[in-house]
């Protein structure tokens, strides 16, 4: 059952990307895309096991949508922030690598969390080790792990936790 669901999710993703690529779409293209997506999803590769973590329930999809909005807003803020730092004559940076903790257990969730951290205010994920993420921070502003976690991770984690677990 889990395997079939993962294959269905993979088929849907592949089919969507195909539709976007071939827009404006013709009927024959839709058929070919659907068939090829089904065939690819049916091939037993080790990679698609990750798609088992994507469970299309309304509550999870809703959290995913909120996450996208939060994430895009953070991207805009971080870009402006870094742009100002580059332009400021005194180069106001206070760099360091801090340890933060994550509650996420799924691989997709952790991947998206690390990606989001890299794309948002002055932080880059450097390494992950168990529940610990090591993050390069351009303006280190935390006394301990909890404070850093609160400032860097929590905003995304809240929604990713619901979406992927």
């Amino acid at each position: 059952m889990e395997r079939v669901r993962a294959q269905a999710v993979l088929t849907a993703i592949l089919f969507l990307i195909w539709l976007l690529l071939s827009l404006p779409v013709q009927f024959s293209e839709v058929i070919v895309g659907a068939v090829v997506a089904l065939i690819i999803a049916a091939v037993p590769l080790p990679g698609p096991a990750v798609y088992r973590e994507i469970i299309p329930l309304p509550r999870r999809l809703g959290a995913g949508l909120i996450y996208v909005v939060v994430f895009l807003w953070a991207v805009v803020k971080s870009n402006i922030d870094v742009a100002f730092r580059v332009l400021a004559p005194r180069l106001p940076i206070n760099p360091g690598i801090v340890r933060v903790k994550t509650r996420l257990t799924s691989r997709v969730g952790r991947l998206l969390l690390a990606n989001s951290i890299t794309l948002t205010p002055g932080t880059i994920s450097v390494e992950i080790d168990g529940d610990d993420l090591f993050v390069h921070w351009i303006s280190t502003d935390a006394r301990d792990v909890e404070e850093a976690t609160g400032k860097i991770v929590r905003g995304f984690e809240r929604y990713l936790e619901v979406c992927f677990g």
Partner: peptide, 14 residues
Amino acid sequence: YNRMQAGTKATTLG
């Protein structure tokens, strides 16, 4: 690392 910061973020939005 700080160059990476400029290189990733400003290019993403750009």
